[in-house]
Nucleic acid binder design. Structure first.
Lengths: 231, 231
DNA sequence: GACAGTCGGATCGTATACGATCCTTCGAAA
DNA sequence: TTTCGAAGGATCGTATACGATCCGACTGTC
């Protein structure tokens, strides 16, 4: 007789879930004994769960003090997104010669669903973020490199946990992003696009999120170099 | 009265060290109670250490069975190096406009030390690998993006742990790598190199390691496209 | 000889207990 | 009023204990 998940595993998933969708805020303290009582387990499996979250850079643990949900200042957030842009762009390059028609169709459906939200009520931010992440995930999963996918997922997790996009993504950026997605899908389908060019455009699409959050405006275009983050 | 490190922390470092430099082989079992006795602590901090190593993808833990040092098959190894090439190339691009003369000099010294090993006895493989990794680390640390650096370090760790380079790096590859390093340093110093070009060449340098291990030969050149891994 | 079933040792999983550390609070002296 | 220091509570850190699970070996049957 055994449950499917060990206690440590289910505790891990529960805490992680709460961090990612705002149940625990950035900076919030995670007290072992409190969580243990809350989830009806002893502190031991909770400690193990927190160690894993620490290794994933979702929480910070200070000896004899305890754990807190990580916060991201503006500079850290931009550096993280910059890495995500890099990985996403390359994953797209790999996807170009591997993606199936089914995956392309799925991505198109997700982007159409996103378009339906553009200009809509701002209180569906959670759904929009989930759709947007799923759109990208569908594409980079087609790139079929385990390490790229894991690192991308991990980066997205930390971005979600930071609540930066959830609280500061400008509403008008969504429409631009949807158009850029369409453009990327066109490039994928065409079959005649230089891989380097596809990678460059995909990277630029992600970097545009930084520019939008910085409030420098938003080109919504991939076909020219926007103010470069790195000359 | 307290020691500098908690037991869990020092256990973590000890195990990690052994995994990285071959004290524990890929595939080897890590038995909690044995390690605990060996390091003179109770099994509890050992479990925490193993959880962290699991989250770092250095070991795999199976419920009710135990932990093993991770193994990398050829395909996984190539995918990991491919990601490393991507990150390293971009870190170099960032470094181009940030690196100091001191860091450039340090990198040159490390590469000169590497050159001194080329053609030398093959039993100094450990030192060569350490120098090589340090050379790259000096450069991408200059890129000054915390996430790039952490992800690169983590990827190098897993590559070291796999023992693939330690056991299969062809001796002749070292001389080529040293020349490529020189070429990259020249590009960094010149100040007139297109950032995209620098990134491309740096990426290619890392990808050449895959080609060398595959045994397809080794161009030792960065100025033309070698048989592409991704068209 | 092949196979199923049972037993036992090895190992993991978690609860509990208790000492160690930190941080806040409160009070007394300057 | 400010500062120093002691006391107490909150919380962490680790050892120990013991039940649960897995796996290999042994035995008996066909």
């Amino acid at each position: 007789m055994s449950s499917l998940l060990s206690k440590h595993e289910s505790v891990y998933r529960t805490i992680r879930e709460r961090i990612l969708n705002g149940g625990y805020e950035p900076g919030e303290r995670l007290v072992l004994s409190t969580i243990a009582r809350d989830l009806d387990v002893s502190p031991v499996p909770v400690r193990e769960a927190i160690r894993r979250l620490e290794a994933e850079d979702l929480v910070t643990f200070e000896r004899n003090v305890g754990a807190r949900v990580n916060t991201l200042d503006d500079e850290a957030w931009e550096q993280l997104v910059e890495m995500l842009a890099l990985l996403d762009g390359y994953a797209m390059r790999r996807a170009q010669c591997r993606i199936t028609l089914a995956a392309l169709g799925e991505a198109q459906r997700l982007n159409d669903a996103l378009r339906a939200h553009a200009g809509g009520p701002a209180d569906q931010h959670g759904e929009v973020m989930a759709l947007h992440r799923l759109f990208h995930r569908t594409l980079y999963a087609a790139g079929d490199n385990r390490y790229l996918i894991e690192t991308l997922d991990s980066a997205w997790d930390r971005i979600d946990a930071s609540r930066v996009l959830a609280s500061r993504w400008p509403a008008h950026r969504l429409a631009s992003a949807v158009n850029e997605h369409d453009e990327l899908l066109r490039m994928l389908r065409s079959g005649h696009v230089d891989p380097s060019e596809l990678e460059r455009c995909t990277r630029q699409h992600s970097l545009n999120a930084i520019i939008a959050i910085r409030g420098r405006g938003d080109t919504g275009r991939l076909d020219r170099v926007v103010p470069a983050l790195n000359p």
